[in-house]
Amino acid sequence: MYIDPHVHMVSRTTDDYARMAVAGCVAITEPAFWAGFDRGSPEGFHDYFRQLTETEPRRAAAYGIRHHAWICINPKEAEDHAFARDVMQLIPQFLQRPNVLGIGEIGLNRNSRTELAVFEEHLELAARFDTLVLVHTPHLEDKRKGTRLILDAIRNQGKLRPGRVLIDHVEEHTVRSVLDAGFWAGMTLYPDTKCTAARAVDIIEMHGADRLWINSAGDWGHSDPLAVPKAAAVMRARGHTADAVRRITLENPRVFLRQSPNFSDAPLRPTAPDLGR
């Protein structure tokens, strides 16, 4: 059994749900993100949020997987501040939906002033509605600076408890600062960028397993929705015990996500596929 706490199933096929179920996936969480193109209107985001809260839970349930969502405007589409604010006005109504865990994945992409301002406004929303927060950290050369800006912004706001915030996509140069500040940290398993399974296991060995999880962040780019069970296999090959594997792939995500009353990984009987056809 495992949980994939960050995967973008709107970009994946139904066969991926089937494969994940066979591999032991019991629950997933899907943050709102950039789907590879800029949406042209707030209504486009409204439809996307409906997809995350209505359609994907049905697709997942067909394979006995519990689906949860995070709502936000992602930083890649946040450079137009007025547009971002229009989208953010839609968020409160979706926070009431039964599979929504909180605000995410907010954060920074190119570390711009507008991205930072929109990030701070999302933090205010999370504080106002007392939700969990899932934070995206930037890619490649922007990650270290962006992670620092993000940690400073959350600290300066001062309204969110670090134990209710997960900082995602950490690597060797950012994991320590995230954990030392009391936040949860996510490692994303990608073939070319972010972490490989071998490096993620190195990080676990060097920094311990407290407040740490792994995810596939499977999406429309180079990614693998089975990255979590494959990393579990790497952990076992590296001599880690079954308990250690279970902690990273199931227990840790459970501890963080159960802080939302909307999270469940209770057994779900697969239903007949209902794809709206």
């Binding site: 190119r110 570390n111 991205e115 270290r144 600076k145």
Partner: peptide
């Protein structure tokens, strides 16, 4: 990774495109 990181600390005035380049 630190060697390949942007060493500046202030937010950028504007986003310079959507994609980072690696270094």
């Amino acid at each position: 990774l630190e060697h390949w990181s942007d060493a500046t600390t202030d937010p950028a005035a504007h986003a310079d495109g959507k994609a980072a380049r690696g270094v």
